[in-house]
Amino acid sequence: MLVINFYFVNHFPSVLMDIIAFIIIAILANRIYKNQEEKPKIWKVLLILFIGLFAFSFTLPVYDTFVKIPILPLGVWILYFVFRNKVEKWMMYRRFAWLGFLANFIFLVAAFASFPIEEALYPQDKLSTYIARTDQANIFALHTSAKEATLKKGVLNKQLSEMQPEPIDSQRWYNDIVNIDVPQEERKEKFPFQIMGTEPRWGSALKTAIFVERDGKGLLITTQKKQYYFRSNESLVKGVE
C-alpha cells in the first residue's frame, strides 16, 4: 500500500537518486512554507508530509525489479477527514499533504532515473562488475570428483577486464551430465569449484556465488536475480590441465 520503497542501503544509484529526490521535496516544501501567510510548526509540516505519502498503489514489474505506481492519495484523505471541522488548519496544511502525495511520483522518477546510472556503473556484461576485489579470494572444490586446486590470482586479476560473456545453455549442460548413454567417467560436474571471498563493485549491492568450470576457464556468476557466464582463454586455476 505504501509507496515508500525499501531498497538496499548499499545500492549507490538508489541512494544517490533518493537523496536528490529528498532535496527536491525539501525545496518544494520550503517554497510552500515561504509563500504561506499562516506558518505551521516545522515538525507538524514533516508529519503532514509523511502522512501525505500514504497512497494506494499498484506494482509494476520493470526490467529486473518492481516499481510502485501511486494512484489514490490515501494520506491526503485521512488528513482531510481529521481536519474536516477545522477549515483554517486544513488550509494551512493542505499544500503539504498534497506535496506528500506528489513526493511518491518524485521518488518514482528517481527510481527510473537510477536505472541508467545502474547500467553505466555496473554493466551486466562486464566481469569486473561482479568481481572487483580479489585480495581475499580463495577457491574450494564443490565436488569430490574435482582435484585439489589453487587460484591463479594474477591471471584472474588480468582476466577481469578481458573475459567475455557467453550464453548459458543450462538445459544442455544438465543433460550432458545426466545422459546415461554416455560412459560415466565422461559425465562429470561441469562447475566443480567455487571462488569465495571476492567483492563485487562498490555500491552495486550485488551478492554473488562464483562457480568455476572444470577446465578453469569459465566462470558462472550467480546473483540473486540472474546468472552470467564468462569465458577466458587461459585457465584461472592451478591443478587442472
Binding site: S145, I168, S170, K190
Partner: peptide
C-alpha cells in the same frame, strides 16, 4: 542436487555439490 531452470528466457544452472 544438480538442477536447471529457464524462466522467461532467464537461464539458471545449479552445479551438483557433493563433498565428504
Amino acid at each position: 542436487d544438480r538442477g536447471y531452470e529457464i524462466t522467461n528466457g532467464i537461464e539458471f544452472y545449479y552445479p551438483k555439490v557433493q563433498l565428504n
